[in-house]
Nucleic acid binder design. Structure first.
Lengths: 248, 248
DNA sequence: ACAAAAGTGTTGTACGTACACCCATGA
DNA sequence: TCATGGGTGTACGTACAACACTTTTGT
């Protein structure tokens, strides 16, 4: 039961006449720092469809909502099946249910998530040994902006998720969700720059996040090419306070 | 077909085993200015359930999603069936789908809407003559904060919708959606005060909305108890620009 | 004349932006 | 010693809150 997962929108729960089926998909964002490139990029995993409609096209990871699982749980499940990772942030994005968005009637509850930057020293084969069965051949990471055209209305969905990410980074403190536990202010600034697509003043950025009181400075420094930079940790006390009165 | 509407969550599309049914509900906000009261209140319509579960309890207006209608259309339809009015604002709120939120498995796509203040001079019987069959005996308007306990998880939903309303009024210009075409700045301020639950400085409020360039001053004045106040009209050019890259 | 709401002016504070400047390290 | 990023200081403009003040009507 745990391994009988096909690609997106496969394993449909016997489609009957007039039935409206409910799917759950997730836009998963992560960060990629290519060695050599000076800027980080926002990336997302896509899965290749193995059947009609849109066979062989790339699509968002997802699956059918099971009768005994909550929406959040379904999003977490498909996320884990695709990336083998636990999200640092998970939030419902929107419910897409236009009649013509799929040949059959499908209402997709779409989530969006952040996963921390993968440590590049772990090879793909090593990572696969950790978890069970997320078939890497049908999953690939793409640049969040320049990805190929997607199946269904998933292009619009990714566009909307990106808008929400950029928007939320302005008033919330979710950027740390893309970073490991310890990070420098330059790391954090790089995340903001990758998301917003523009350079930020290092001096002003420093004061902004220092005044927000969401970061805890440590006594460790990252030594590198030049003057060592202080390492910070995110204040977990803000995890719960960030969201509004969501139904949880 | 157009009149075979029962109360909320009735007329279910033959509930089979393991089937996940999709409903659409809407939190409809309007404004009530009681004659005599000095402040306006935010009110919302509720419908009384006529069958189990939660028989005779108040609940949000809604109904089952039809196989051939979009989510937005379903929200508009149930809204019209309940109030007989056209909304000045309609937006998806959230998809609620916890397993235990209803005895059977129901995923509710919830919208929230604003309808303009009803002209109190039209009596209920006159208004009923306009539209067809929204049975007024099972629909009643309540204060948005002090309404009675609701069926299902609708208390949480209303709470969340109120949070969204208060939130959105801070950065968007949707408050005019509760007012008629022509209104004074005091009218508009009263809306903000009713939503936010606190008094606002008339002088600062005036400058804020004037600088936003979303209001068009007319040459008409409302004469009343004291110095006449200029009437304003909302600039419709901002209708489309307000929302982000929503899937439309 | 007076009360009360409409409307204008002024001031202080907070915050974001631009940018000059010093500090500490590796090469 | 020099280049480079880490880190501090300062000045300016905008936005908002507080509040004094003038204007215009009905009674």
């Amino acid at each position: 039961m745990t391994t009988t997962r096909g690609p997106v929108h496969a394993a449909q729960p016997d489609a009957r006449e007039d039935g409206i089926r409910v799917a759950v998909s997730t836009v998963i964002f992560s960060l990629r720092r290519d060695t050599g490139a000076d800027r980080a990029r926002v990336v997302l995993p896509l899965v290749r469809r193995t059947r009609e409609p849109y066979e062989s096209a790339w699509a968002l990871p997802g699956g059918w909502l099971r009768p005994d699982e909550n929406l959040d749980a379904a999003a977490s499940r498909t996320l884990a099946e695709t990336t083998g990772l636990a999200p640092s942030f998970l939030e419902q994005l929107y419910a897409f249910g236009d009649v013509d968005r799929s040949p059959s009637r499908v209402v997709s509850i779409v989530y969006w998530a952040l996963v921390r930057e993968e440590v590049s020293s772990i090879s793909a084969s090593t990572a696969a040994a950790h978890d069970d069965n997320h078939d890497d051949e049908n999953v690939a990471w793409f640049d969040a902006i320049t990805h190929p055209p997607l199946a269904f209305d998933h292009d619009q969905i990714v566009e909307y998720a990106l808008w929400r990410l950029r928007n939320k980074v302005g008033y919330s403190r979710i950027a740390h969700g893309l970073l490991p536990d310890l990070f420098t202010l330059a790391d954090l600034r790089e995340v903001y720059e990758a998301i917003l697509g523009r350079r930020l003043d290092p001096a002003n950025f420093r004061r902004q996040v220092e005044n927000s009181d969401t970061l805890i400075p440590t006594d460790d420094y990252r030594t590198g090419s030049h003057r060592p930079a202080r390492l910070y940790r995110y204040d977990e006390a803000f995890e719960l306070a960030e969201r509004g009165p969501l139904p949880h």
